[in-house]
Amino acid sequence: MTADPTYRGFALDAETALALLQWQAELGADEPCLDDPVDRYDLPERSPAAAPLPGAPRIGTPDAAPPPRPRIQPEEDQAAIAARLAAAAGNLADLATAQERFEGIELRKGARNFCFADGNPAARVMVIGEAPGEEEDLQGRPFVGRAGQLLDRMFAAINLARDAVDAERALYITNVLPWRPPGNRRPEQHEIDAMLPFLARHVELVQPELLVLMGNTPCMAALKQQGILKLRGHWTTAFGLPALPMTHPSYLLRTPAAKREAWADLLSLSARLDP
């Protein structure tokens, strides 16, 4: 009879051990460690290299100078790389490919799907959100969770929809970040900076008439400002276009009383489209 393998008093079968290993890998663990630390200063020294055998060919000469060490070039700024890739994109398909392959943002390693955009690219109105959530990450489309469903109802109230064929009544939707941040945390500034060239080129290729900046993150990206409760409802300029900051639908779900102000913003947008 053999004892069950245990780990600190808990039974550990093969299936549980594999599940724990997969869980740690998802958290970012990439190197196995022992239970006790290893003092590498206390390891035995390596034995000296053996002398060459008689008659073996000699590589180099004792008097030969060592080869020069390669000069280390400073790493190119990721935003500069993104700007170069974005500028080379001649259409939305090229831009999506370049952004998805861009390796200068760590979020891509933990996300399930790349979320580029949704809706009609010929739309007069382009909505810019913050980043994908859990449902968006699963489907690979922006604004499809509870907040996205509320967004659809909000814009339907002024006769705009992402699935409208008529460009006059269509919406085009994207996010500052195409990858979901872990735990739906707020995007960090360096992540916004890395994605900004792609966003600017995105707006340039779509050429909408008006922009809607949904939440603090798009305001930070496009306006270098935050404080959406003060910015909302005030028309401004972003990427050379008229832009209206609005509170994010997720905020409205948490704060239903703010829907009155969001409705006022929608009426302002509608009046701008149909003066």
Rank of each mutant, 00 (worst) to 15 (best):
D152H: 00
Q189K: 15
E134R: 13
E31S: 08
E261W: 01
E191A: 13
R185A: 15
C115E: 09
R232I: 07
Q189A: 15
E15W: 08
C219N: 09
L229K: 13
L267Q: 15
V176H: 03
A200C: 14
F114N: 09
P52W: 05
D4H: 00
P249M: 13
Q207S: 06
L160P: 02
R232S: 03
E209V: 00
V165S: 14
L43T: 01
C219H: 03
P142S: 13
R40V: 14
R186L: 03
L196S: 12
A258N: 09
P178V: 14
E75Q: 14
L213Y: 04
L253W: 02
I59L: 13
N184L: 00
F198E: 03
L269H: 04
R254M: 04
E103N: 10
D274S: 09
P74D: 12
K259T: 14
A64V: 07
P208H: 07
M246W: 07
Q139W: 06
G215L: 01
Q139F: 03
G215E: 04
P5F: 02
T174D: 05
I81Q: 15
Y251V: 02
F114R: 05
P48I: 07
I72S: 08
P66D: 11
F10N: 10
V165Q: 14
E261F: 02
E191G: 06
M246L: 06
D39F: 04
L210A: 04
L266T: 05
P70W: 07
A14D: 14
A271S: 11
D193N: 15
R185T: 09
